[in-house]
Design a binder for these strands. Structure first.
Length: 560
RNA sequence: GUGCUAGUAGCUCAGCUGGAUAGAGCAACGGACUUCUAAUCCGUAGGUCGGGGGUUCGAAUCCCUUCUGGCACACCA
């Protein structure tokens, strides 16, 4: 594992060794080696790697950084035993630029050909048992664009974390209890009676206006008849809720499935309510003296934990709040053995984050183990106007419609492409009319082109992939090989920072380099040695693309 | 009002936790298919990194201040 990672570690280590040697030889006077950077310069002219170490040391050594750099480079050359660095230059204010050897780039490609579809995998996070909860949309309606964004980000993140060796459980929290369900039930009841001809029924104030629930009750009547009209309202509402939630959940599962997403656990909020978990949590808080009663409700002293105000746990009607249930739910996750809880929430929940962390501390669980990725909401444009998405008013574009119009691959890529922090403007008209401009096709096209070359070979490709190390001489070949080598670094970055968009960006960069290579280099009909070398390069590219597209949940078509 | 978050090319966004001349993609303009797929490639143009201070060899990046969006501040979830 870790071609580039190991190289970078080695280079940094060698600089430290060199400095130590300088200390021994009394060329340098410092006692501690400062934290220096090893970075990939933006401009290729400045080498494959650059370090700022001479500039950092110049302060300590009280010497001109360029003079110091000369000494450091000599020391480095003395300790370097790898042969991976071909040339070292001193530039600008005192940067030390390093150039990788051609031989090394060939090694990268050979390594990928050995690891194949495991290339990029490692064991970095093998100690982590992660519960990743996302989407968790209320089952009172259909999935909308915001949910779709969460689905794409969450699933991709789960895939990356698994590649890094973590054990990941994808979880969907079903809000099947509480006030909103009551409202939902009342709305269903009204629609049910209306469907059977009753007129002028008052619609509940916070009811659900979506047209879909009308369909639901009609479906119920078709299937089960109108017998419910004759039972008590309570019984009728309960039955309608049960029927409806089950129908909605099936629908949600179906469409998430079509989106390429399969959950490991579907966890019901009602389980938390019915299992005594909330009471247990309240007892813990009570024992710590963090609860008090006021105006008939039970409050949590969140002010003593640094929050602005206290929060209600148990309402004066005796029912627990969402917050109370959520504390119990997160406690439950820890109790199930997870050491990391990652939630993906809409940005409108950000006020909830700090409170939850404090609450975890209060019941004696880790606040640090709870991470929340906040996602800005999706703003939807249609006919040049912003559509306000709301379940209650029933104006939203569903995941179903999205899949029909742009397809799974484009939709998934589009949602993952951007940092969750930024608002996502989704123009439906653009998505429909210009879906071919979507970057995902660009990436897939690179894959299809490679497949096409391999199809045109006269012999099986394996016969060209001997163990001999390839050597690349053209800039574009080297760039492509180096980019392939970056994969593992990108995956680690994306996983550790919980930023899956980095993978989407990388995929695009890799595809760009491939297309450039494709238009300036031929593979078939080249002299035998060149042909072999290039075949190795494109097969390594193919594996890399397959791996990334797999993580993104985007298909890799052989033909387009 | 308080808190969170953002402000970079006409548009949508990167910028790797302080580095060298701030980068892509769309859109605009000009080129490239008798050769492995033109869903591609090459080139041109486009910038006071919201404004103002500060920290230092060096700032889009860190600190302060200010302006402008978005969101949150329920006995809703």
């Amino acid at each position: 594992m870790g071609i580039i990672i190991n190289l970078e570690k080695k280079i940094k280590e060698n600089w430290r060794k060199g400095i130590s040697l300088g200390q021994e030889k009394s060329l340098l006077s410092l006692s501690n080696i400062p934290e220096f950077t090893l970075e990939v310069p933006k401009d290729k002219k400045n080498g494959d790697y650059a370090t700022n170490i001479a500039m950092l040391l110049s302060k300590i050594e009280k010497k001109n950084p360029r003079e110091l750099a000369i000494i450091l480079v000599e020391l480095y050359k003395e300790v370097d035993d790898t042969n991976n660095i071909e040339k070292i230059e001193i530039a600008g204010p005192g940067f030390i630029n390093m150039y990788l050897s051609d031989k090394y780039l060939g090694e990268i490609v050979s390594e990928v050909l050995i690891q194949k579809n495991d290339y990029g995998h490692n064991k970095l996070l093998s100690d982590e048992k992660i519960n990743l909860e996302f989407v968790s949309a209320n089952p009172t309606g259909l999935l909308h664009m915001g949910n779709a964004r969460g689905a794409a980000i969450g699933d991709t993140l789960a895939n990356v974390l698994k590649v890094l060796g973590a054990e990941v459980t994808k979880e969907y929290y079903i809000n099947d209890a509480g006030n909103q369900i009551e409202n939902f039930g009342k709305s269903l009841d009204v629609r049910f009676r209306e469907a059977l001809g009753e007129k002028d029924i008052e619609f509940p104030e916070n009811g659900y206006h979506g047209a879909d629930i009308l369909e639901t009750v009609k479906g119920y009547i078709k299937k089960n008849g109108d017998g419910l009209i004759r039972v008590s309202e309570e019984e009728r509402v309960a039955e309608l809720i049960k029927y409806s939630l089950s129908e909605k959940l099936d629908h949600i599962k179906t469409y998430l499935g079509k989106f390429g997403l399969v959950y490991d656990v579907w966890y019901r909020e009602s389980t938390i309510h019915n299992s005594g978990a909330i009471k247990e949590t309240m007892d813990t808080l009570e024992a710590k003296g963090l609860l008090y009663e006021n105006e008939g409700a039970v409050w949590l002293k969140t002010t003593s934990m640094g929050e602005d105000k206290d929060e209600v746990m148990i309402r004066n009607n005796g029912l627990p709040t969402y917050f109370a249930a959520d504390i119990a739910y997160h406690k439950n996750k820890y109790d199930r053995g997870f050491n990391k809880l990652i939630n993906i929430w809409g940005a409108d929940h950000h006020g909830h984050v700090a409170r939850m962390k404090r609450a975890m501390e209060a019941i004696g669980y880790s606040a640090e183990g709870l991470e929340v990725i906040l996602m800005q909401l999706v703003r939807l444009y249609k006919n040049g106007e912003v559509l306000r998405m709301s379940k209650r008013t029933g104006t939203y574009v569903t995941l179903e419609e999205l899949l029909d119009e742009v397809g799974k691959d484009a939709a998934r890529y589009f949602f993952v492409m951007r940092n969750p922090d930024s608002h996502l403007d989704f123009d439906m008209d653009l998505a429909k009319s210009e879906s071919a401009d979507n970057p995902v096709y660009y990436i897939q096209y690179a894959y299809a082109r490679i497949s096409s070359i391999l199809r045109n070979l006269d012999k099986p490709v394996e016969e060209f992939l001997d163990g001999k190390e390839p050597m690349y001489t053209l800039v574009i070949e080297k760039d492509l090989a180096l980019k392939i080598g970056e994969l593992e670094k990108v995956l680690i970055d994306a996983g550790i920072r919980r930023e899956p968009y980095r993978i989407a960006t990388y995929a695009l960069e890799l595809a760009t380099l491939f297309h450039q290579f494709y238009s300036s280099c031929r593979v078939l009909n080249e002299e035998e040695e060149v042909k072999k070398n290039r075949l190795k390069l494109i097969v390594a590219t193919k594996y890399t693309l397959e791996n990334i597209l797999g993580i993104l949940g985007v298909s890799a078509p052989e033909r387009m």
